[in-house]
Design a protein around this nucleic acid. Sequence first.
DNA 1: GCTCCAATGTTGATTGAGTCAATATTTCGA
DNA 2: TCGAAATATTGACTCAATCAACATTGGAGC
Lengths: 310, 310
Amino acid sequence: MTTQHDRDVATLRAFNRVYTSRLGLLDTHYDGSPFSLSEARILYELKTRTTSMAADIARALRLDPAQVSRTIKRFSTRGLVVARENPAHGRHQLLSLTEAGQTAFAALETRTRAAVGALIDGLPPLQRSRLLSAAATLNDVFDGGAPEVTLRGLRPGDLGMVIARQALVYASEYDWNTDYEALIARILADFHDNFDPLKDDAWIAEAGGGMAGSIFLVRGDQAGTAKLRLLYVEPDARGMGVGQRLVETCIARARELGYRRMVLWTVSVLTAARRLYERAGFTLVEEAPAHRFGHDLVDQTWALDLEHEA
Amino acid sequence: MTTQHDRDVATLRAFNRVYTSRLGLLDTHYDGSPFSLSEARILYELKTRTTSMAADIARALRLDPAQVSRTIKRFSTRGLVVARENPAHGRHQLLSLTEAGQTAFAALETRTRAAVGALIDGLPPLQRSRLLSAAATLNDVFDGGAPEVTLRGLRPGDLGMVIARQALVYASEYDWNTDYEALIARILADFHDNFDPLKDDAWIAEAGGGMAGSIFLVRGDQAGTAKLRLLYVEPDARGMGVGQRLVETCIARARELGYRRMVLWTVSVLTAARRLYERAGFTLVEEAPAHRFGHDLVDQTWALDLEHEA
DNA sequence: GCTCCAATGTTGATTGAGTCAATATTTCGA
DNA sequence: TCGAAATATTGACTCAATCAACATTGGAGC
């Protein structure tokens, strides 16, 4: 039996093979280029970090200091690099490109850009955009550090994404049918059409360039009562405090807008959400069985007094 | 000034650098492994293509025949590979792994899988899923051949994706406001709630694992009249015949369901869609200016007689 | 039949990549 | 002040990569 983990490993290994055979040539020794791949990488480091030690380059590129030393020596004899003494530290030497080195680098850049450009241009638009968005994602995953969670207001496409993600996730996790999707589509259409900036609000949580969650604040049926609606956290973003931030932000805004009470409707199977509500001070005020989304569920109403809480 | 193309090239080159420094070690010479990266690649080819010539391997891996020859020779002396004469062709030799070769390969596989698995497990869930989906996309872009366009029925999440993509694309291309998003959210909620399999239908076009377009068939106000709604083609998938296939499929289904006439509502700025309608035989029956989605647009109604056409 | 050509596989030669070990030098902290 | 750690270099070695030369074989074309 193959687990998801096995399949993930296979995917990544296949990617590795594809990369080595199809893309690896991207940086390799173009016909007639005076630089090998390794030399080009070192040259790139010399250019970007204007003054640097050989040891810095070795660390950045995970190369052996011996190899860097020899490469720098070759560059020196070719007149591409000069090593100045560091007055502040006798053992460090400051490497920098000469005029000739700058010129050689520029020529290499031009050639590389042209080659990469040709590869991109050779792809049909769909493939190109898929390639580039995947490449950008990988850059961010490996170079972007820990993904930061940010909250923002609604933008075009957000309503649809909220509908799509919730419908898909609850269909796969709880086997809910598409009644749920239609329900939230209508809720969000109403939210937009009745939107009053003094009574309503909404937030999208973003992490790593994608949606990580969402929450909506809507006026309730009675004056002074707000409704918290459609709290959602992406499965992959769980455990990052996204839900708590959304709930807290929503409650704080409700207070700002002068609401005295907040209610929300949910169903009992959504246990992760339940914990968030409890933590925020909500209490369960009503429960009733209901047949929804193809299942026998238990409707719940939770409420929070906004006046007599911290 | 930097064009989009320049940025794309930079993205891909950054990806290349990130890959070489962060992921390149994936296949490299694990401590104590008896195989170098190049040897491991050749071993992999020997395993997967059960019998093969050295020349095949050289072509597959874009290696020099000389290098393959020498590597195979090393493998032979280590007892990992045997070369049998090809009775059909005296110059070709059939290479295959010995028992020892199979064992060595299996050990290498185990070690590699463990290393890749450790890398995956070391990532937080969000990063992991982003990495894997990007890797899968790249595999498909480079190994999957031309993306095939397929049509399918609705699944959970589709309504939301249709809303999200149309809202986002028309906002960026025509600067429409979010009224449009709310409008189609309501249209699709109604579509779901009133759905009758004998009168309504919907299709999602897929290409390369993502949505490439969509179209909806809905019963009209008058008996015998169908409405074509929400035709949409992803910008990246334009020019692939997606729109035409959607329209043709929709019309064919309308005929099947016994409709005698088909109408559609659109606005005049959607010129690409207009061409599709004309091509399918629709004729413009009504035009009226209207202020919609934050702009002065021209509403259009098109109609197609389903009885007296091919 | 024959010749020419292309493909296959091998070997030699050379340069660079990659790794390990040893060493000289310098700085910095205990 | 001493020793640890970092920097830079050199030697030694194996493999990767590339080019050139060459022998061998099968097949296309005559």
